[in-house]
Amino acid sequence: MFSNEHKLYLKNIRKKNLLIRLSQFIIIILFIVIWQILADKNLINTFIFSSPKKVIDTVINLHQTNNLYQHIWITVYETLISFLLGTGIGIVIATIMWWNKFIAKVIDPYLTVLNSLPKVALGPIIIIWSGAGIKSIILMALLISTIITIINVYQGFSDTDVNKIKLMKSLGANKRQIYTKLILPANYNSIISTLKINISMSLIGVIMGEFLVSKSGLGYLIMYGSQVFNLNLVIAGIVILCIIAAIMYYLVLYIEKRFKR
């Protein structure tokens, strides 16, 4: 079907990709093996640095006491809630701003300040206002994801081709029709991209919130581990978080591929 040259070309691509994957795999294996050897030879203090075996033991222990899934679920649940709420609220506020340029101009400096403010600074206030519970955590995550959503989506709305708006007006469209038939579909791709940023923003917010207040979740596990000086628990928490972050990232990547036009 293909010429020999093309077959060679394809083979080379496959070879290169395989080499990349292999290298990636070797790095993580080497890292784990060296870590374990250093721990076995007592070259590092396992009380501070833990070891792969101990991390695995901790995960198995968490699995046996059934706590593991509880913590994972709480963190994932909080992240999803903040992600959905943050995206929804963000798009609604961006819509209001597009609809009413006066409001947009008035709230612009407040948005800019809120965006540059490290949200963790608001942590203590959030705890006092909404209590040491899941509400505070979601609020924290919302603060982080919503503002960036508003700014990104509003930017997209404002950048919609003026000539297309002119066309809509020449066809006699009212503002609602311009919004539903032009602004929204024209910004479909940029909204999907915003979702991608948003899911990691929500996860950051949730872990930050769990650090500050919480009784369960991966952030709590890591914080609790450090307080009782159980570094095995801390590192186990971080490893699980890595895996969850990766799964979420690839999920959104898939959604993006599937739905982007």
């Binding site: 000539n163 297309k164 066809l171 469209a173 029709q177 038939k181 579909p185 024209a186 479909y188 036009r261």
Partner: peptide, 26 residues
């Protein structure tokens, strides 16, 4: 009816859907 300088066809609509835009709006 106003025909603008650039065609301004919406990339996410088919040609038929684009041509029906004015009727939809009205």
């Amino acid at each position: 009816g106003y025909m603008l300088q650039s065609d301004n066809l919406f990339e996410w609509r088919t040609i038929l859907e684009n041509c029906l835009l004015g009727l939809e709006i009205n």
